[in-house]
Amino acid sequence: MENQITDTSVIFKYDNGMMLEQFDQIVSEFPVTIFLGGEEFATMVCTPDNLEELIYGFLASEGVIRVYEDVKSLQIDEAKGYAYVELKNNQCISKEYHSKRFIGSCCGKSRQFYFHNDARTAKTSTSQIKLTPNQCITLMKDLQNSSMVFQETGGVHNAGLFSQDEMIINRADIGRHNALDKILGYCVINRIPVRDKIIAFSGRISSEVLLKAAKIGVGIILSKSAPTNLAIKLANDLNITAVGFIRGSSFNVYSHCYRITEK
């Protein structure tokens, strides 16, 4: 039986001096354990939809695969919360490799906070795409209006993949990383080129979110919230335009402002 994205719960709501019993929609939280070549590799806690995309995106983000064809087979047992992945090339994937910090520098810049796999998979953007200020505002509004799960529960992060003029796909999840991995997995499965695309995101642009955008390969990330200082440093390093606080008719550009232009 397929897992439900939302569940119904009895709650007590205080409103205008009264405590009222009512039903409310609550977002589901579901653990999925990935077995890679028969060995337990990782467990993710996620919103249980688009699990195939999530797994492909997570493996691509971790540098385990690069293209769809790298996976020989994928079987998902939703009842147990297990995903069994067999790769075409049964290379040894070290858990230690995927958890140790990589302490180093890159041409004297700020990449000392990467994991090993981040240093291998985060791409410096070569995107030539540009947006007008009005496009930034419109795309952010489109993302906010697109997620029924958020409107029902208020309990998920939203991410969308856009061209200059329209949404290609949007995904929601309780985990901000998962929402972005679902986007990446969709691109891997459907072989969608991403250099000329944009990511819009509902939450704060942390360094980890910025790195996810770099792994997807886009040149612009839009958000209604703020970036962290490390995210800005990484955006400058990776040639990514980070736009935040998109609210109403205003926003801030934190890096590589040349991609936001009236022309």
Rank of each mutant, 00 (worst) to 15 (best):
A122G: 00
R101Q: 13
I199Q: 00
V188I: 15
D173S: 10
A172W: 01
N236S: 04
T132I: 09
K233G: 03
I137F: 10
K212E: 14
S206H: 01
S255T: 07
A213H: 01
I169F: 02
F30Q: 08
D15V: 13
K212S: 15
R195V: 10
E69F: 10
Q4R: 12
E262H: 13
L59Q: 00
R259M: 09
I199A: 00
M140Y: 11
I168R: 00
E262T: 15
S125D: 01
I93N: 09
S105F: 13
D15Y: 13
I26F: 08
N3I: 06
T261F: 12
Q4G: 03
L51N: 07
D24R: 12
N90C: 00
D70V: 04
I246D: 05
N190S: 09
S202I: 03
E262L: 08
N3P: 10
A159L: 02
E86D: 13
C257Q: 14
L59W: 03
D118R: 02
E96H: 10
R101Y: 12
N50V: 04
R176F: 06
M18S: 12
L184Q: 13
M140W: 10
Y254N: 10
T124Y: 07
D77T: 04
N145A: 14
V85M: 02
K72H: 11
P31D: 12
G17R: 11
T43G: 09
I55N: 01
T261P: 10
K13D: 09
T228E: 11
I137G: 08
M44R: 14
G185D: 05
S73R: 07
L74I: 11
I103T: 14
S255D: 04
I168V: 09
E39Y: 06
A42W: 11
H157L: 00
E208Y: 05
D142G: 07
P227T: 11
T121R: 13
S61M: 04
D118T: 05
S202M: 02
N158S: 10
S223M: 00
